[in-house]
């Protein structure tokens, strides 16, 4: 996701800028501005079953997280603030935190949030958890389990960042077993699982 919001309505851009400045002046304000962001700044109207839908409120909230990064140079304080946003967030807010993790310079401090999201069965959270942050920081065994979970809960693998780079022989074996189990039960195998059945490289440790 790009940090700039294309075709941004000027009034919305103005509201977003004002809230970003407010957070940079007083970072604690993110605790009430982040949950209210869709209502106060802007949202994509309606709901969608498309877990990969590019929604305005996600982009807006990621921008607020970027303002937080600028406002709180101390990484431990910033990390605590991000964890609290996730802890007290609803599903939309948690999704936005996951989408913004790679913008926050937290190294691997927020990996527990990725693990938490991957334990849910909410496809929107699972999809958001396997973005650039997980591609960089999630260790191989957990990352493979995450990809397999996508197949189980119906998250398109196109949404998994770095799939081509990180897919390995072990993932190929796991997806192969999954496909065999589906076929044995007379069920279909998702189309996007099929390319993974071809081993591409030896497994990482």
């Amino acid at each position: 996701m790009s940090s700039t919001i294309p075709s941004l309505d000027p009034a919305l851009a103005e509201r977003l800028e004002a809230v970003c400045l407010e957070i940079e002046a007083d970072p604690a304000r993110i605790r009430v501005r982040f949950p209210a962001a869709a209502r106060e700044i802007g949202r994509t109207p309606g709901t969608s079953a498309d877990v990969g839908q590019d929604r305005l409120e996600d982009r807006v909230r990621v921008r607020l997280l970027e303002a937080l990064r600028r406002a709180v140079p101390d990484v431990e304080r910033r990390n605590t603030e991000v964890h609290d946003l996730y802890r007290f967030g609803d599903a939309d807010e948690r999704r936005a935190v996951l989408l913004g993790l790679d913008r926050l310079d937290l190294d691997d401090r927020a990996l527990d949030l990725v693990h938490d999201a991957l334990r849910t069965n909410d496809p929107r959270l699972v999809a958001a958890a396997l973005g650039p942050y997980a591609a960089t920081h999630l260790e191989a065994a957990d990352w493979r389990q995450g990809v397999l979970k996508c197949l189980f809960v119906g998250v398109p693998l196109a949404l998994v960042t770095g799939l081509d780079d990180r897919a390995d022989a072990e993932l190929s074996r796991m997806v192969g077993d999954y496909a065999a189990e589906r076929r044995a039960a007379g069920r279909s195998v998702p189309d996007d699982a099929l390319p993974l059945l071809l081993p591409v490289r030896p497994s990482e440790s």
Partner: peptide, 10 residues
């Protein structure tokens, strides 16, 4: 002390 986080929600 936690109420403001919830009072901000949709």
């Amino acid at each position: 002390d936690l109420l403001p986080r919830y009072l901000a929600k949709d």
